[in-house]
Design a protein around this nucleic acid. Structure first.
Lengths: 185, 185
DNA sequence: AAGTAACCCGAGGGCACCCTCAACTTGTGC
DNA sequence: GCACAAGTTGAGGGTGCCCTCGGGTTACTT
């Protein structure tokens, strides 16, 4: 077990995490590390002391933001009685997450190579999506050929739309859902 | 009127344009100019001699590739008797263009700020799209609320899909078209 | 064949970002 | 309060890309 951090080190670590969160949210997961250090009021060397690689920083930030958020969305979707509404809810939630903050957008749409840790968290979210997709498909309200890969494409596509028109994804999702639904035009 | 170029200058200009075309096609419109000079077998200074800015290079390249291609696609689409098939044909053609080469993908989806020249060419293509959209809408086979802006979003979305899965756009387009169509499920 | 304008070259300065390390400062345990 | 480990610092070297400019080369003219 690692020795406890010194008091000032804890402070700096926290400041770095806070700065990184807002910088990533604003500029994306490839935001310059030097900006983060500056925003934290700390030298670049200190940043590298605490987080030797960019992935270390991401690992400290993303899982605890992504995991609960995705779980919550899946839970909401599964709480819907109607499988189709559940599916709708899931997508609106996921894409809403992407739209809310550029860091999540980059992570969910994998715009950037992710560390195993973050990848694992995304994988868990994906597992839950399988349930929701399966339920809607089995109920006959989602195209039987709808595959998880389609969901992946959708996150890529929406990541791009969101970047140029942060509100535009809702309209796009409406059209897409309409194409993916069975019956009840 | 500018004086005629010297023979070696013409040769170099041509080599530069050829190199730029393949480099842009492979790496996108923000490919390093130094790579282009190297590929052309010419010094970076010579590149800047002929094309003082990146836009000058793009202006010499894109309009003559983009203009005819987009016109051709629109013509094909309008040649279809069935307005819906025309609309389908148009989108398949446009997105196929994006998928064919990264330079066109970047230009059509405007991943990068474009010069007025290139922008004008894209605008012309857009005009033709209006006809095809209007025809399909008036015939009642395209959602009446489908707007040109939806087409723009689609090019953004597809640009992203194409970058990660060059074939994936066809599947995505199928789903999308299904959502945008009226009647005939 | 010589003179000249046109053209080519590439070293180099600027910038943004990456990352390291040796010298300094500060918290902590005795 | 002292000593030392723990932590901080920022200058600086590396890389990749941008763009310029002064000196060398080459095609055209006569």
């Amino acid at each position: 077990m690692a020795r406890a951090l010194r008091a000032d080190a804890v402070r700096n670590r926290d400041k770095l995490l806070a700065a990184a969160a807002s910088e990533f949210a604003a500029r994306g997961l490839d935001a310059p590390l030097e900006h983060i250090a500056k925003r934290a009021g700390v030298s670049i060397g200190t940043l590298y002391n605490h987080f030797p690689t960019r992935d270390d920083l991401l690992d400290a930030l993303l899982p605890e933001r992504l995991g609960p958020a995705m779980a919550e969305i899946a839970a909401q979707a599964l709480a819907e009685d109607d499988p189709w509404r559940g599916f709708e809810t899931y997508l609106a939630g996921l894409l809403g997450l992407q739209a809310r903050d550029r860091a999540l957008n980059d992570a969910i749409s994998q715009r950037i190579p992710l560390s195993p840790e973050v990848h694992a968290v995304c994988g868990q979210g994906f597992e839950q999506a399988l349930l929701i997709i399966g339920r809607a498909r089995d109920a006959g309200c989602l195209r039987p050929d709808f595959e998880p890969a389609d969901l992946l494409s959708l996150t890529w596509a929406m990541a791009a739309v969101i970047q140029r028109n942060p509100q535009g994804w809702r309209r796009f999702l409406d059209l897409y859902l309409n194409g993916v639904r069975v019956g009840r035009r």
